[in-house]
Amino acid sequence: MKSESNYGTINIPQPGQESPKKIEYIFENNNALFPENIEIYKFKTPYYESLQQIERLKNYFNIKNTTTKEDKDKILILSEKKVIEIDKNNGYFSYINNEKLYNNKIYKNIPTDSEAIEIAKKFLIETKLFSGRFQSVSVTAQKAENEAGETVVMAKDVWFYPVVNGRPIYGISRIIVTIGNKGEIEAVCKYYRDFEFYKKEKLKSLEKAVQEIKEGRASSNIPPEATKAHIKKSFLGYWEDPEQQYLIPVYVFQGETAINNKIEKFDIFTPAIENVELVLNKNIDEEYFSTQKD
């Protein structure tokens, strides 16, 4: 069903677990100051820009003698073991070197985290994929068993998350560069669209956002057994999913709850402006919850 809201729908994942049936929200250190209005951004038409970026990728990785397959939604560019896939609807794309990625038959000399970040950033700058908005960076290790049965690091994933006006962007928005043997780039995933200022909107009051949380009109990963949720921090961010036309501001609440004497952390997201239809989608990858952690 198509939304009649001015800004359409915002799809935020709701974990498959049940929500707590009865829970008390306790707000601690509730001294955060929020503006009266907040900036709204509109995504640019990304498809043609992505095609230019793909040409730079082909040159960088020396991809020649390609075969192209295309349907109404995607473009596949194939060259031996190298594959580039472009989503025509939003401009997201990925590059994978299938000969190198996940290959546990060869010994891999993997860079340190700081070296991997330097290599990935240099690559993004050279291919004009880097934006000054990428101010949040993290590194994770891909591990597997080698032929000797030892668990070894096979690659480093460098995650670049955008920030706008000091506020993190949650959801799918990121670029991931996979660094393998001797610093070689084995994969790139661009799930980021550029955007431009659209207008300012009045911020939904914090009191109304809190009431919506209590009424279940928010996305949270609070364990179902929880009876008390201690909100430690509240701030503004933005949310991007593939179908949005606008970058939507959200209230972000982070806190803790005790389950069997063990502290569990949680996040809560709810739209920070009116005229947005919130869709709690249980089919979206829950890793969107874990982006841009403090």
Rank of each mutant, 00 (worst) to 15 (best):
I268M: 04
Q245R: 13
E147S: 14
N181M: 10
V83W: 03
N89A: 11
F34C: 08
R174T: 02
K143P: 11
T257F: 06
K22T: 13
T291L: 02
I84M: 04
E18P: 03
G149H: 06
N59D: 13
E264F: 11
K233M: 09
E24S: 12
A148D: 07
E286M: 15
E118S: 15
F93H: 04
I106F: 04
I77D: 03
V83H: 13
A258Q: 13
L78C: 08
P168A: 02
Q254N: 12
V164Q: 02
C189D: 07
K81D: 10
S290C: 08
K128W: 00
K202D: 00
L280D: 08
S79P: 14
K143R: 13
Q244V: 08
Y47M: 03
D157M: 12
F289A: 06
D241Y: 04
S290N: 11
L206K: 07
Q211C: 04
F93W: 07
S3A: 14
L76G: 09
N90P: 03
L124M: 12
L129Q: 08
Q135V: 05
R217K: 15
E4Q: 05
R56T: 05
A116H: 01
A148I: 01
E70L: 02
A120Q: 06
K228F: 11
Y198D: 12
S94E: 01
G180M: 04
